[in-house]
Structure formats: structure tokens, C-alpha cells
Amino acid sequence: MKAQVIVKLKQGVLDPQGVAIGKSLSTLGFQGVNSVRQGKIFEIDLNASDEKSAKDELQKMSEKLLANPVIEDFEIKVSAS
């Protein structure tokens, strides 16, 4: 089973890298950019009997390692195949 875990900084946590990227985009002439927030994507290939058990496993992985709950939120996406 293939999955993606998307880790993002929580709302309200300042993201200086996102701000710098946003400024760079404006400098390049992309005038419509209001803000940028940078995050991480983990692409995980795992063995699981069904989607639910995969999501449960990924939830634990995210809480224990992939995200730091003090500053980050995460989102799990699972696709069969």
C-alpha cells in the first residue's frame, strides 16, 4: 500500500522559510502570492491488510516520529496498489 504523510507547521507557528520563499516568489515577479508555508511529504510504501489498519499504523508513526506535535500537524493519505 502506498501512503503519503504531509507534515505542516501548525497555524500560528511562524515559518521563516515560508516567508523567505514567498518574498523570493514576489521578487521573481509572481505578484499574486499572499503567503507560503513550507512543509514535508513522506512517501511510504507499507504492508497492511486494509486501508484502516494502514491509517492506524501511519497515525502512530506520525505521532511518534514523523511530526513533532509541539509545532507540527500532519495529514495521512492512503492509496491502494
Binding site: 507557528v13 511562524l14 521563516p16 522559510q17 523567505a20 513533532n68 509541539v70 509545532i71
Partner: peptide, 11 residues
């Protein structure tokens, strides 16, 4: 210890 250490504001 509580909290987290993030990238410096100045990058």
C-alpha cells in the same frame, strides 16, 4: 523538556 527548537528566524 517541553517545547521545540525551530529554525532561527533569520534563517
Amino acid at each position: 523538556l517541553p517545547g521545540a527548537l525551530m529554525r532561527n528566524k533569520s534563517l
